[in-house]
Design a protein around this nucleic acid. Structure first.
Lengths: 108, 108
DNA sequence: ATACAATACTACGACTGTCAAGGTAATATT
DNA sequence: AATATTACCTTGACAGTCGTAGTATTGTAT
């Protein structure tokens, strides 16, 4: 799997990718990790550590909130919800991406 | 100018952009800097420091060579040439970009 | 029964590309 | 005479990603 996308080309997209997943409903850390692999048809994965540091960043800036699931058995899960501010960040980042794409295409 | 593209979205593209300029003929540091602004219709600039560190990197890995211009007056110029290895790197990076673009579009 | 894989989260330290700030020196413009 | 532009370079800080490591539970295979 992966091996294709260098982390430098990914940089800056992680947060937006996470937000894009949460836009479709609450989810927890490990599930988001899995969903990214699935959504990219197994073509690449974002390391767990990278994601967890993204969650921390996003929560700190108010783009997401978290709450502990009430699993009575099994590993407890920390669920994340996207906030209104987070949705705005997502929209903004998406526009940035469309813009960047054009510029880079022009330059390469 | 600029202000739009965050450096994180640029990360990893700098070297490829430089190679793409040199592909069209030898050039020197400051001129490359100017050409990037021009080629992007003034929409963004790569900082000079960022570029100079890119030149160093590219030369070290053998993607470009350099030679001093023979200006008898005025600031001396250091010209860069793309090597055969560099052209291969360029082609490879461009394919990477096409690939990455698709994945990110799928994920956002 | 026992080992192993998968689930689920976290901490820490290293690496690397970008940038801000600062510097030198010559030529061209006002 | 003063300033802007050309042209190069160094240094140190910052931030995002990743490798490595660790804890603890549940499910599956031997």
């Amino acid at each position: 799997m992966n091996g294709k996308i260098s982390s430098d080309l990914l940089r800056g997209h992680t947060d937006t990718i996470v937000l894009s997943i949460l836009k479709d409903g609450d989810s927890y850390g490990y599930e988001i990790y899995k969903k990214i692999i699935e959504k990219s048809d197994g073509l690449f994965e974002l390391r767990e550590t990278t994601l967890y540091s993204s969650y921390r960043r996003l929560e700190q800036e108010g783009s997401i909130n978290s709450y502990w699931g009430d699993e009575t058995q099994g590993g407890r899960r920390k669920y994340y919800t996207i906030t209104l501010a987070g949705e705005k960040v997502y929209q903004h980042n998406k526009l940035d991406w469309e813009f960047t794409k054009k510029i880079i295409d022009k330059l390469l």
